[in-house]
Simulated assay, not measured.
Amino acid sequence: MDGDEQLLRGRVYGHDHDDPDPGPKAGRTYAELVGGPLDGLLLDIHGWRTEEVDDGVALTTELSRWPGGRALYDPRPGEPRAAGPGIACRFYYSGDTP
């Protein structure tokens, strides 16, 4: 099994750990979250425009510096992105906000 197949077995952000099917769905596009409190989760970015991906995200989590706050994740400028379903890019942790 290659690395991308192993990553696709990860949990998708927003799915509970006890969800019977918390993993990615075939035909969807995901960003891998790297570092910080949500490290290793996948974020469903299917249908996002390039500009939306470039803006990064602020994801609600009880695991941030401020419980109930948001963890900030951004793509790295110039990092290659894949087209189509599967893991298209990575978002890197850049801090927390209340």
Score class of each variant (00 low, 15 high):
residue 34 V to E: 15
residue 50 T to C: 01
residue 85 P to Q: 05
residue 25 K to G: 00
residue 63 L to T: 12
residue 53 V to C: 04
residue 30 Y to G: 06
residue 58 A to N: 12
residue 86 G to R: 00
residue 60 T to K: 12
residue 32 E to Q: 13
residue 83 A to F: 11
residue 82 A to S: 11
residue 80 P to D: 15
residue 69 G to Y: 13
residue 25 K to C: 01
residue 51 E to H: 02
residue 88 A to S: 15
residue 59 L to D: 09
residue 11 R to S: 04
residue 17 H to M: 13
residue 97 T to V: 13
residue 41 L to K: 06
residue 63 L to G: 11
residue 78 G to T: 14
residue 77 P to A: 10
residue 88 A to K: 07
residue 35 G to Q: 09
residue 69 G to Q: 09
residue 55 D to Q: 15
residue 22 P to T: 08
residue 52 E to T: 13
residue 66 W to H: 10
residue 43 L to A: 08
residue 31 A to S: 15
residue 67 P to Y: 11
residue 43 L to I: 13
residue 29 T to L: 01
residue 93 Y to G: 06
residue 15 H to M: 11
residue 70 R to K: 13
residue 78 G to N: 08
residue 76 R to Q: 15
residue 59 L to R: 11
residue 52 E to H: 13
residue 12 V to R: 10
residue 84 G to P: 11
residue 9 R to S: 13
residue 56 G to F: 03
residue 8 L to D: 05
residue 62 E to C: 00
residue 17 H to A: 15
residue 31 A to K: 04
residue 22 P to Y: 12
residue 54 D to C: 03
residue 39 D to Q: 08
residue 55 D to R: 15
residue 94 S to K: 03
residue 14 G to S: 10
residue 37 P to V: 08
residue 95 G to R: 10
residue 39 D to F: 00
residue 76 R to W: 13
residue 12 V to A: 05
residue 23 G to W: 01
residue 17 H to C: 05
residue 31 A to N: 09
residue 39 D to I: 03
residue 48 W to C: 04
residue 9 R to G: 14
residue 35 G to R: 03
residue 15 H to L: 03
residue 34 V to C: 14
residue 25 K to S: 02
residue 80 P to E: 15
residue 65 R to L: 09
residue 80 P to H: 10
residue 24 P to Q: 06
residue 45 I to G: 06
residue 48 W to S: 02
residue 45 I to V: 15
residue 12 V to W: 09
